[in-house]
Amino acid sequence: MPSKMLIGGVLLTAIIIIAVLGPWVAPYQYDQMSILARMKPPSAAHWFGTDELGRDVFSRTLVGAQMSLAIGLGATALSLVAGVPLGLLCGYKRGRFDEIVMRCMDVLLSMPPIMLGLLFLAVSQPSAWKAILAVGFVYIPVIVRLTRALTLDLANEDFIEAARARSERTWYILLREILPNAWPTIAVEGSLRITFAILLGAALSFLGMGAQPPSPEWGLMISGARPFIAQAPWVALAPGLSMCLTVIAVNLFGDGLREAIDPRTGSRGH
């Protein structure tokens, strides 16, 4: 196993455990306010200090890990569930269907992800679950193009020709022959896509189009801390560093996974 994958896996596992146990191990309720404890610096009572409403930043950061990871994992799962089947069909069927779908994907890819996410959310009241849908929708074209390219490469292989000669149905060829051979590369892309999903979800919350107060989502916490950066930098520092650590962990794991299973080079790690 590559060292990157090991280090990233350990960090990511620790973050996931924190996210799951956060609401139970947090010393305070994430929305518990105290006027007398406003803007307190880090101390034994409040490890990461308190915010402008007297809420414990450490507790909010712990609980916020759950929502930030939910956005990253949920959005990535959505993009895979929608994008992989569409990419398989486009790469295998080709023709007019492929042309129409790929032109639509090109239009979506031509737009900046943050702009596409804002357009998706602008039509309704923003919320955390809608942010998951928006981020997942943004990354569907990427998954479609990747899956289509892999399918085009595999469609003319001898084992696919043999399946056609046996008169196998299209769904059998796609799911039993092509997908297992394409999946390692798709899994690597999906693991790296989690990073972008977390950052985009945080950006949408920062702009007020994702999770809404009093949610402790990290992007929303950073947004709320903007007016107090000079007075109480710890309010933004805790969620910001937590997000950076999560992104580093996912990137290390994804890079290690790419080294461990790369069907184009036959690499099996070092």
Results as ranks from 00 to 15, higher is better:
191 S>H: 10
222 I>R: 14
231 Q>W: 05
143 I>V: 12
229 I>M: 11
168 E>F: 11
130 K>T: 12
115 M>R: 02
162 A>V: 11
107 V>C: 15
187 A>Q: 08
208 G>Q: 12
127 S>E: 03
176 R>G: 06
223 S>K: 10
104 C>M: 13
225 A>H: 04
95 G>M: 07
167 S>P: 12
204 L>Y: 00
142 V>G: 06
114 I>D: 00
146 L>K: 11
144 V>T: 08
219 G>I: 02
194 I>V: 13
148 R>H: 08
208 G>L: 09
100 I>S: 01
195 T>V: 11
166 R>C: 05
146 L>N: 09
168 E>D: 13
176 R>D: 12
224 G>Y: 01
131 A>C: 14
224 G>V: 00
127 S>F: 01
195 T>A: 14
129 W>D: 10
209 M>K: 06
161 E>C: 03
121 L>K: 06
101 V>N: 09
179 L>I: 04
184 P>E: 07
193 R>F: 09
173 I>T: 14
234 W>P: 04
109 L>P: 14
139 Y>I: 06
115 M>G: 05
193 R>S: 09
232 A>K: 01
104 C>S: 06
147 T>V: 04
154 L>D: 04
217 E>G: 15
109 L>I: 02
224 G>K: 15
128 A>K: 06
167 S>N: 13
212 Q>I: 08
132 I>Y: 00
117 G>E: 05
